[in-house]
Amino acid sequence: MGQTITVTVNGTAHTADVEPRTLLVHFLREQLTLTGTHIGCDTSTCGCCTVHLDGEPVLSCSVLAVQADGCAVRTVEGLSEGGELHPIQQAFHENHGLQCGFCTPGMMMTALGVIEQNPQASDDEIREALEGNLCRCTGYQNIVAAVRSAADQMARS
C-alpha cells in the first residue's frame, strides 16, 4: 500500500513511506512532526495549511504527500534563519498582526507569495490577495499593515 517518497523540507531531505491518500499537511505534521502548519477547515477556505511547494504557495490539504515526491517544501519552520526572524515574521510581530496565532503560519506563507508576485501591492491589493486566508481574531487591519511593512522591508534589502 505504502509508497516511498523523498521530500526536501526546509532544506532537509526526508525519505518516508506514506499511504497514497495521505495529505501533505498530515505528512508534515504527523510524520515529520512539523506542527507549525495548521489545519483550519476541510473545504480549502481558510488557508491555515498554506506552505510553499517548489517555491509556490499551495494548500497542503489539497496536495497528496505522494505528489510532493522529489519536491522542495518550505514551511513556517523554515522561515527564520540562524535565529533571525524573517522580515514577514518580524512584521507580524511589530504590527500586532496576530492574536491566537493559529492562522499566522498560513497567513505568512500566503503573504510571501503575494509579495513575490506583487512587491508594490496596495492595501486593497493585499486584502484581495489574502482572500483565501481566514483570521477570526485580528479583524485583518494589522495583518494588512504587517504585509505592507514586510513588502517594504524586503524591497529595501
Binding site: G47, T50, L59, S62, V63, T110, G113, E131, G132
Partner: peptide, 9 residues
C-alpha cells in the same frame, strides 16, 4: 477563480 493560492495550482 478561488484565491491566489488556488489559482496557482
Amino acid at each position: 477563480v478561488g484565491s491566489l493560492v488556488i489559482r496557482g495550482r
